[in-house]
């Protein structure tokens, strides 16, 4: 194979893979169904980590519907009933779900527990999330993949709030 052609392919590979990755996330964000969940900080030391907020999402699950055990792949069924199932036991009747896992504390982790914010607004948003004023808008597709869309503070986009303050 011509060396120049090989180099061109090698240079193209990361661009294509990264662009494809970004495109998939973008598609998931715009095509998925939007759902809003309240969020809350769970550990004052860990809530603000550098340039992102980490929080716990309140999926509105009752005690009976929580993680059946720890350290397993799991799915959170949203419709018709909010309940967590082991990934391979998700019933056919579940029409909307989020893939994730149950961690060592038997808590459902969906991978949506991080929201990047600019450093200058971090403290303001941190305080508001601590005060339980935060909500997370996510987009969920048919395959159970979910992505973060926006952070709401008092039901308004966070950018509006920080602009006012």
């Amino acid at each position: 194979m011509n060396r120049q052609f090989g180099l061109a392919l090698a240079l193209l590979l990361p661009i294509v893979i990264l662009a494809g990755n970004a495109w998939l996330h973008y598609q998931q964000r715009i095509a998925g169904e939007s759902i809003t969940f309240p969020i809350e900080g769970f550990d004052p030391r860990d809530l603000l980590s550098g340039h992102y907020l980490i929080y716990r999402i309140d999926y509105g699950i009752n005690d009976n519907g929580n993680c059946p055990t720890s350290d397993i792949a799991a799915s959170l069924c949203l419709k018709p009933e909010r309940r967590i199932y082991p990934a391979d036991e998700l019933p056919q009747s579940c029409t909307q779900f989020i893939r994730g896992n149950c961690d060592s504390s038997a808590r459902f982790i969906s991978g949506l527990e991080r929201f990047y914010v600019p450093q200058q607004y971090a403290d303001i948003l941190d305080e508001k999330v601590r005060n339980k004023q935060g909500k997370l808008v996510i987009a969920v597709d048919q395959s159970g993949n979910a992505g973060v869309v926006d952070l709401l503070i008092n039901d308004r986009p966070w950018k509006e709030i920080v602009t006012e303050e």
């Binding site: 990361p14 990264l18 990755n21 996330h25 990047y116 973060v148």
Partner: peptide, 15 residues
């Protein structure tokens, strides 16, 4: 390339 991976994570809030 590494910076772009970081940027994608930031834009889509990837964990």
């Amino acid at each position: 390339c590494l910076a772009v991976i970081g940027l994608i994570a930031q834009v889509f809030h990837l964990n």
